[in-house]
């Protein structure tokens, strides 16, 4: 099957992913992009891994169903919109682009991402944003509408993470432990209640300042726009800023 046998309208392409192995599905996506597709609608997606991996284009890919692990791994510039839940490793080592998930995401969302933006409407699993980095004015942003499991932002070396706590029932505390363990760069803005004992030893806590507020406003406004929330209502909540206390958390570990 090739792209020309698919229903093709102008620059929009529809692919029925039902029954396709990831290798075949990605080949079709690459072909469509090579032929200039601006919008690709994938229907019937059911667990196929690596969708749109390493894709370098401005294309917008709408994913209906449940994509598998490593969605948009090494992504470099496309926009992926998922109408469903994402699994583990969404945005793994992402370089640029945008991933918008109308649902939950599994473990290690945004692992080692260096750029781009990831918006998750609801909750994420363990170790979200682990080892996110930043480089030459480029930094990833991971916005989580709900809450996260343990080791959120572990080893974080750069970028911005926002956790909005919208799925927590009326003022309930976040439950993640070891938040920001080993963190040595970047920043986490967390809306809602978290206790000191839930944080890693390398994490400092403060109130967001004016600059932080501006960053938050931008990201929350985008988040609200994607998922139809009221940005002002979210921003009115109570935020804390988590930041790394040391650039070199393990500098005093060794005897030379």
């Amino acid at each position: 099957m090739s792209v020309d046998t698919l229903s093709q309208k102008g620059l929009a392409v529809r692919i029925d992913a039902n029954g396709f192995h990831h290798r075949e599905l990605n080949r079709l996506i690459r072909e469509a992009v090579a032929e200039g597709a601006q919008r690709i609608d994938l229907h019937g997606v059911c667990g196929q891994r690596y969708i749109a991996t390493n894709l370098r284009s401005g294309a917008e890919i709408h994913i209906h169903g449940t994509p598998g692990n490593d969605l948009g791994a090494f992504l470099d510039g496309s926009r992926l919109i998922v109408y469903g839940n994402a699994q583990d490793g969404c945005g793994n080592t992402m370089n640029e682009g945008e991933i918008i998930v109308h649902g939950h995401a599994g473990d290690i969302a945004g692992l080692s991402a260096r750029g781009g933006r990831i918006f998750i409407r609801e909750d994420v699993g363990y170790r979200a944003g682990i080892h996110m980095k930043e480089y030459e004015g480029k930094g990833p942003a991971l916005v989580i509408g709900g809450t996260a499991q343990d080791f959120l932002g572990e080893y974080m070396a750069g970028g911005t993470m926002v956790v909005l706590g919208l799925t927590l029932n009326g003022g309930n505390c976040h439950t993640a432990s070891f938040v920001g363990t080993g963190m040595h760069g970047g920043v986490i803005y967390l809306r809602g209640q978290i206790n000191d004992y839930q944080l890693g030893k390398e994490v400092g806590v403060s109130q967001p300042n004016r600059k932080d507020r501006a960053i938050l406003r931008e990201l929350v406004t985008q988040f609200a726009g994607h998922f139809g929330f009221d940005a002002e209502e979210i921003l009115a909540g109570r935020f804390v800023k988590l930041f790394p206390l040391y650039l070199r958390p393990y500098g005093r570990l060794y005897t030379y």
Partner: peptide, 21 residues
């Protein structure tokens, strides 16, 4: 070195023990 590793200069480059995926 920082530019090649794509990280800020002067920060520790920490490689976690396992690959977390």
């Amino acid at each position: 070195v920082a530019q090649t590793r794509m990280i800020p200069a002067g920060t520790d480059a920490l490689s976690p023990a396992p690959q977390h995926d």
